[in-house]
Nucleic acid binder design. Structure first.
Ligand code: ZN
Ligand code: ZN
Length: 816
DNA sequence: AGCACGCCGACT
DNA sequence: GTCGGCGTGCTC
């Protein structure tokens, strides 16, 4: 019999795989992509993924045995492992970090592992030592015990060798719940005994029940609802008939009703299996045909469709085709755009074939979607960023809607991946077609399309008769007197709001989130409370009455006296949207207003609720941040006001102009529906800025051309690749030393392509000082794989240099 | 990531 | 003199 070894991936930021030995009894159950339970270090137990199987015994050390195999079927497919490796390689991070991001944590396991007794009767207790005895005793009292509880029980940290001994003796087992930590939800359904389908039998039943009115009610209710629905659950029947469970039990005992338990998905859904036909308009059909034609020669297409042009119908039709061929489809959306509306719409077409995957799901729900995709029960996934990691088989189509959205990029922690780009690679792995969609494509995607890498399909007709809104730029500079009276609203905007409300139409006001967080400010000396661990101002949270740091979670009670000058004139500036709401309250006391921002949408369904209420005209004015650009078409909005466009445009980032354009265009797109032509008022100081002009003219093309020219001359994407390196150190002087040393080393390889080091906007986070380096590599002439290789080597030697002790690096490839 | 081993300050 | 602080290195 052979002795096998496996190299496993651990869910840790470690750069290598570890080799474990396979006990003979597991020889037949191991396979690449299955999870195994391993002990790593003295005390830790992890579930690891088998990366490869071999027979080479390690020479320099003795491999530990795996403790268990968790899966009967593989849980991570070969394509997924290939994707993980690509991500680790491209984004310069560890495989374990990718694993962490990819696997739902219900499928991972740490020392929260539970053990159960295997067979208490056959154990010869005399063979056990005192500690083993203690564990057995505990297991007799409670059937499941966590490893961490055993540590407490024995009062010692190294319990795994003992447990391992017990495992080997066959006394204990690792609880299945690790493997199946998520449990399918069961639901009881009621059905009528088929003998009563006969009219005569039914009549007799009614007569026999006339002295049991509750039971008769239950039967009648059942028959009534059975006409319109396929299945009736026990709970539903009890509720609708108004009778208690005793009546139902009596009927079950009489064998009138039958109750069976069925596994139902945790994810609420209507099991509507009918696939509905999509009817496309002429323009949509033309775009659809162009996409299909493009897919013959190119794997990737970009659908550039203006707001409300009906891109979704095209997506649905494409998905239909793929599903009919028996393949899977992935429909990616930014988290914030993944609303109930879009989910319902897709459910309507695809019923239970569709699965939804996003960060608001519970861990069990995520694991359930994972398994269903694995088993092929779910063919279509509608999901946010992390759904690129799901175990698809035979993927035929990947759609990335709102392709330009920044939220496709994960910034922290590693893997710092771009889900749109990852989706493109995923498509390549599965030989699937990829469709990117946007009303304002990112410069890089549009450039790729223009350069012929992607098929470009334009859809520039708004659906139905909806017209483009009229956009007006209003200067914030003009009225000095007026401004003193109120800093947010120009008379023009106020006048327009009043007119709109008089027509019984609705208004949306947009305020940029950035730079409008609620900080405390001393009116006398300008002091504002800072975090003690980070170089940022604390933000005030009304709910807790405390000031919080967003970077490290530090909290402090609200202060009432300025620690710098002793003044008591401390102003709480509040959220930007809050202040606007207040100001507007004075100006228009009768208007009903709602806020849509981080603060007002903290609770679970509040986002949906606010939008629904607004849609039903319970509010006249909606004041919101970036969020109002999302959500589907709602309300009877005919006026949109941008409070201050400068804060968007002046943001210090090479993509600020591009983002401002897409933000302002998207928000503007919310104005006007069907019969009403919308109006947009943009307030700004820099009224002559080219971006504003381009927004007014709905001129994406010119925006694109000017951006491309600028990026080419200043060395930014799509012409250059960017790699950001953050050097961190507890000491503010040594961080500069380390960064400089690294810069010199990198310059030996890359010359002037290395920029910096410089201190970033926030110079210290969690007590670590930060310096950043930026690498700019010409995309056309520099081989990225060579760059990465050199970089990997340089970074490795950085860590071995004694001078760099105490510092560490964060690498971010494509940091935008 | 977590844990142990090891080297320097303040406290019985 | 020791207790404990965290900085450093290893885990198959
Ligand atoms: Zn002050
Ligand atoms: Zn902080």
């Amino acid at each position: 019999m052979k002795t096998y070894f496996v190299d496993v991936i651990l869910p840790l930021a470690i750069g290598k795989t570890y080799t474990y030995r396979i006990p003979k009894q597991f020889n037949d159950s191991i396979a690449v992509g299955k999870r195994v339970v391993v002990q790593f270090g003295k005390t830790k137990i992890y579930s690891a993924i088998i990366h490869n199987v071999h027979e080479k015994a390690p020479e320099r050390y003795e491999a530990k045995y795996i403790l268990d195999v968790l899966d009967e079927k593989i849980i991570v497919k070969a394509e997924q492992l290939a994707l993980w490796e690509w991500i680790a390689d491209y984004y310069l991070c560890q495989l374990g970090e990718v694993m962490q991001a990819a696997l739902p944590s219900a499928l991972k396991l740490a020392s929260e592992t539970k053990i159960i007794a295997a067979d208490l009767d056959t154990i010869d207790r005399n063979e056990l030592n005192e500690k083993e005895y203690l564990i057995l005793d505990a297991l007799e009292i409670s059937p499941e015990i966590k490893v961490s509880d055993i540590i407490k029980l024995l009062g010692q940290k190294t319990v795994l060798p003992i447990l391992k001994g017990l495992l080997d003796k066959g006394v204990i087992r690792i609880s299945e719940e690790i493997a199946e930590r998520y449990k399918p939800k069961k639901k009881a359904f009621v059905s009528l005994n088929p003998v009563y389908e006969d009219q005569e039998a039914k009549r007799e039943l009614f007569e026999s029940l006339n002295r049991a009115p509750k039971q008769l009610d239950a039967v009648m209710t059942y028959i009534h609802f059975k006409r319109s629905q396929e299945k009736i659950s026990k709970a539903e029947l009890l509720e609708k008939s108004g009778c208690g469970s005793s009546a139902l039990t009596a009927l079950v005992n009489k064998e009138v009703f039958n109750i069976q338990e069925e596994v139902v998905s945790r994810i609420s859904e209507n099991s509507d299996e009918f696939l509905k036909e999509v009817i496309l308009s002429e323009a949509q059909q033309k775009a659809f045909d162009e996409i299909k034609e493009g897919f013959i020669n190119k794997e990737i297409a970009l659908l550039y469709g203006v707001t409300a042009s009906g891109k979704t119908e095209i997506y649905i039709k494409l998905i239909h085709e793929v599903v009919d061929e028996g393949k899977c489809a992935l429909y990616l959306l930014p988290e914030i755009a993944l609303t109930t509306q879009i989910i319902e719409r897709l459910r309507f077409h695809f019923g239970s074939k569709i699965g939804v995957y996003h960060s608001r799901l519970s861990e069990n729900e995520r694991a359930e979607v994972w398994k269903k995709v694995l088993d092929g029960e779910i063919q279509i996934v509608l999901g946010a960023r992390s759904s690129v990691f799901l175990p698809f088989c035979d993927l035929g189509l990947v759609i990335v809607d709102e392709e330009h959205e920044v939220s496709y990029k994960q910034f922290d922690p590693a893997p710092r991946y771009q889900a749109r780009d990852t989706a493109i690679f995923l498509g390549y792995l599965h030989q699937a077609k990829v469709l990117l969609g946007s009303a304002t494509p990112s410069i890089e995607s549009y450039y790729n399309a223009k350069a012929g890498k992607y098929t470009l399909v334009a859809l520039n007709q708004r659906y139905g008769t909806a017209q483009l809104p009229v956009i007006e730029i209003v200067s914030l500079k003009s009225d000095v007197k007026q401004k003193a009276a109120n800093p947010y609203f120009t008379p023009t905007l106020i006048k327009n709001i009043e007119e709109t409300l008089a027509k019984k139409e609705q208004v949306i006001l947009f305020q940029n989130r950035r730079g409008h967080t609620p900080i405390l400010l001393c009116a006398t000396c300008g002091y504002s409370p800072k975090c003690i661990h980070c170089d940022v101002s604390l933000t005030y949270h009304k709910s807790s009455g405390q000031m919080h740091c967003h970077y490290c979670g530090f909290r402090e009670d609200l202060i009432h006296v300025c620690p710098a000058c002793g003044s008591t004139h401390l102003q709480n500036k509040g959220f930007g949207t809050q202040r606007i709401e207040e100001e507007l309250g004075y100006l228009l006391p009768d208007a009903k207003m709602a806020r849509l921002d981080l603060d007002s949408t903290r609770s679970k369904y509040s986002f949906e609720k606010i939008l629904a209420d607004f849609d039903e005209h319970r509010y006249d004015i909606l004041i919101g941040t970036q969020m109002v650009a999302k959500g589907l078409d709602f309300g009877k909005v005919s006026l949109i006001g941008i409070i201050n466009a400068d804060s968007l445009i002046n943001y210090p980032d090479f993509r600020a102009f591009e983002r401002s354009f897409s933000m302002l265009s998207q928000v503007s797109g919310r104005a006007g529906r069907r019969d009403i032509q919308g109006k947009v008022i943009i307030q700004a100081y820099a009224t002559g800025h080219r971006i504003l002009e381009q927004v007014v003219n709905h001129d994406y093309e010119t925006m694109f051309l000017t951006e491309v020219t600028e990026r080419k001359s200043y060395g930014y994407p799509p012409f250059y690749r960017l790699i950001k390196i953050e050097v961190k150190h507890k000491d503010n002087l040594r961080v500069v030393d380390c960064a400089n040393r690294l810069a010199i080393q990198l310059r030996q390889q890359f010359g002037e392509r290395v920029l910096g080091p410089e201190e970033p906007l926030i110079g210290r986070i969690r007590n670590y000082y930060i310096n950043t380096l930026l690498l700019k590599m010409e995309r056309a002439t520099v081989s990225i794989s060579k760059v990465k290789e050199v970089l990997r080597n340089t970074l490795e030697s950085y860590h071995t240099d004694k001078l760099n002790k105490g510092s560490f690096l964060h690498v971010d490839v494509d940091p935008y």
